[in-house]
Design a protein around this nucleic acid. Structure first.
Length: 354
DNA sequence: AATCCGGGGCT
DNA sequence: AGCCCAGGATT
């Protein structure tokens, strides 16, 4: 395969200087691969350095409280990644003496590690020829070999894994894996690929037939649904009532301003009572905000609410949080605008009083 | 095989 | 307004 050597030479000349490429510590490589799942390099950079400074070794991560790990993950999204990573760190300490496993079978067995990440760690950290097929590689290979089938089909991913396996250059698994990904990230772009700057365009069947813009083929995703979510802002003095979401599911384990889905204020109060066991009395309509997830849109209506003075909070997930501590708990992006507005109004009122 | 799970940047 | 990103787990 002529293109392999051309690609390797291109990579060695053009690769970006990224933090996870400055060492070969399997733990550090692993952290980078988890963070980079469905997440762009530019987004990961700041998180990565901060995370490794706080959790420099697998033992540091294993010993940390999951709530602190989630705080370091705050805003990155797909929070089960952080929870699985923390769990995997514990398994590495217990079952592997704190040393990151070195066989594909053992790496793949860790929670949060699938075929891609296992291949990435094996090839990048250990220079072993295990394919790591991500979105970049699927795109590059579907064009290079003119694979016209929908790349969301598992059979196509299998085929690409086999093609990559056969292409692995001896003793250069680390560079080859990253070269394929780097080409997809810098040259073989999803739209408007830079074919005339591509080192392997002579071998690219899609380029030869001018089909690079038609590949890869992929099924469309259905439109997102929008729901109305009523949020209760319940403040007593300098404390605010917050809810810790259940460990599993959407935004699992993160803190939120308590709320429910509903059509109107009446439903708001009824559902809130059922969900939290607390009667609320909406006072003033405070603000509206919208948050778009991948499959869902929240139209949020935020109301200042009062509690019955005799009300005591029994719901274990509901907790009074001092405003000064609001920045120390993990709050997802969906609620950051509310949080910031709340902190700003309170601090400006504080300045008035002093 | 289909669905869920974040967030952000680009077109 | 879509599309896509260094995907994995669950059903």
């Amino acid at each position: 395969m002529d293109w392999v050597k051309l690609l390797l030479n291109w990579y060695l000349e053009n690769k970006r200087d990224l933090p996870w490429r400055r060492q070969k510590d399997a733990y550090a490589i692993w952290i980078s691969e988890i963070m980079l799942q469905q997440t762009r390099v530019d987004t990961v950079l700041a998180y990565y350095t901060r995370f490794l400074e706080r959790f420099p070794t697998v033992r540091d991560l294993a010993q940390a409280d999951i709530d602190e790990v989630l705080k370091y993950w705050e805003g990155l999204g797909y929070y089960t990644r952080a929870k699985n990573m923390h769990k995997a760190a514990g398994e590495i300490v217990r079952h592997h003496q704190g040393v990151f496993p070195q066989t594909y079978r053992e790496v793949l067995a860790l929670p949060g590690i699938g075929p891609y990440t296992a291949g990435a760690v094996m090839s990048i950290a250990y220079n072993q020829p295990y394919p790591a097929v991500d979105g970049n590689v699927l795109r590059v290979m579907s064009r290079l070999y003119l694979l016209k089938k929908d790349i969301s089909q598992p059979a196509v991913k299998k085929e690409v894994e086999n093609l990559v396996k056969q292409a692995f250059p001896a003793e250069q698994a680390c560079d080859f894996t990253q070269a394929l990904i780097e080409l997809g990230a810098l040259v073989c772009l999803p739209t408007a690929p830079k074919c005339f700057g591509c080192p392997i365009r002579q071998d690219c069947k899609a380029f030869q037939e001018n089909l690079q813009n038609a590949l890869p083929s992929k099924q469309k995703k259905p439109a997102r649904k929008s729901v109305i979510r009523y949020i209760a802002l319940i403040q007593q003095g300098d404390r605010i009532l917050m809810n810790k979401r259940p460990a599993d599911g959407l935004l699992g384990g993160l803190w939120e301003f308590p709320g429910v889905e509903g059509k109107n204020k009446k439903e708001f109060c009824e559902k809130f009572k059922i969900k939290y066991g607390v009667d609320i009395f909406p006072d003033s309509h405070w603000m509206d905000t919208k948050h778009e997830f991948t499959h869902l849109i929240w139209e949020m209506k935020i109301y200042r609410c009062r509690l019955d003075p005799a009300e005591t909070i029994k719901e274990t997930r509901l907790q009074w949080i001092p405003l000064q501590e609001l920045n120390t708990i993990a709050i997802p992006t969906a609620f950051q605008k509310i949080k910031n507005t709340l902190l700003n109004t309170n601090s400006s009122r504080g300045r008035f009083l002093t």
